[in-house]
Design a binder for these strands. Structure first.
Lengths: 212, 212
DNA sequence: CCGCTAATGTACGAACCAGTACGTTAGTTA
DNA sequence: TAACTAACGTACTGGTTCGTACATTAGCGG
């Protein structure tokens, strides 16, 4: 090994460092010179491989979403009862968010910019994302068994789960200082994880308000 | 009227324009010159009244939180049963978030910066925020009546409600394009509003998982 | 082992932008 | 109404930062 020139490695290194820098400081706060300085190569290479700051950011965003999708695909809950499987999905999503604060920050940053860059990544728009199609299947099974309410679909349940997981990580600072309680406090982690699962399942089992 | 010089008016105008600019472009994306251009005064006045970009941002943040607190204080649910009152709080919070996207964006922006500025506003750290103390009282009543589970407190219920409301507004762009469903679509508004209330109440009424 | 191109490095330019030095005017008060 | 100060305007500066022109080297194909 120890090849002096390795296009793939250089590109990957730039991408990794850029991911850290953009998620750390936001798009406008990130510095191309800083990214270059943290790699073992130079700024010239950023322009050589990516074209510019904007394109580098888009590449970072795309890569981050790809990794999350890949991870989602690993979840298997075929052997569980619907309610238990939903709990499991909620927990996996919870763990995921906690384990990937960089990704969460990138999503926040992208929304501050009104999602103008995700919109340019058409092959990310896969309405049958692993998380959603899995939920969809479980909701069907639960409805068939007469357990779950029938006025929600997978996308909205996904919204509900994501909202909780996302907020906890994304707003840890303001929430923590304003209410004197750090949502990421390890001591409370298992409580929140159960809270989320309880919440989702209780909602789905709740026939009172909606069904009929 | 028509006084040519009015310190208070000038200050207020700068603050209003700055709120729009910061929430629109983020801290690093905002331009002092742009803020000045959109006021009827000049950049000099920004430095005269606020001292600098950073201090202006902090003033914007503080003002935004103050307005939200003022609004929260108006909510009255004394005449309602606990569950119904909780629904009402959830709905009011929901409406609030939808009506104040600028505030939501500021909170996102502040969290991207790790909350370093809210932390410098000590008189914002009021652990008995109107929203929380109201929830606290209702949870007590609900528990006394043997209705609600007893392993959550007001802060965490507030987290749960805020998470849903916040996510829907803050992540409208990425969620909308990735799942082909705009969370702010007016046609779905009332559904989401009910969904949130159902979710919270179903969780609180759920004795199965937690209470004894 | 020669030459060609992909890959890399250096040094610089030009625009942008926060902040300020300096000057002016309005309104108040003695 | 004189003088004083709060409020306001203009023009500039110094540093930062994205991007690039130009030079160089590694490694592969012939």
């Amino acid at each position: 090994m120890e090849r002096r020139r390795d296009a793939e490695r250089t590109r990957a290194e730039i991408l990794a460092v850029a991911t850290a820098e953009f998620s750390d400081r936001g798009y406008n706060g990130a510095r191309v010179d800083e990214i270059a300085a943290r790699t073992s190569t130079t700024k010239r290479m950023i322009y050589y491989y990516f074209g510019g700051k904007r394109q580098l950011y888009v590449a970072v965003l795309e890569d981050a979403y790809r990794r999350i999708r890949d991870a989602e695909q690993q979840v298997k809950v075929d052997h569980l009862e619907p309610a238990e499987a939903i709990r499991r999905i909620a927990e996996v999503t919870f763990d995921h968010h906690e384990a990937n604060p960089d990704f969460i920050r990138l999503v926040s940053i992208e929304n501050i910019q009104r999602g103008e860059h995700v919109a340019t990544l058409p092959h990310l728009v896969d309405l049958n994302t692993p998380a959603v199609s899995l939920l969809d299947e479980l909701l069907s099974r639960g409805r068939s068994a007469g357990l779950f309410r029938s006025d929600v679909d997978a996308v909205d349940v996904h919204l509900m789960i994501s909202a909780f997981c996302f907020f906890r990580v994304a707003n840890q600072y303001t929430f923590g200082t304003l209410f004197g309680r750090d949502p990421l406090d390890p001591a409370r982690r298992s409580f929140y994880r159960t809270m989320l699962a309880d919440m989702v399942v209780a909602y789905l089992l709740d026939r009172g308000s909606a069904a009929v």
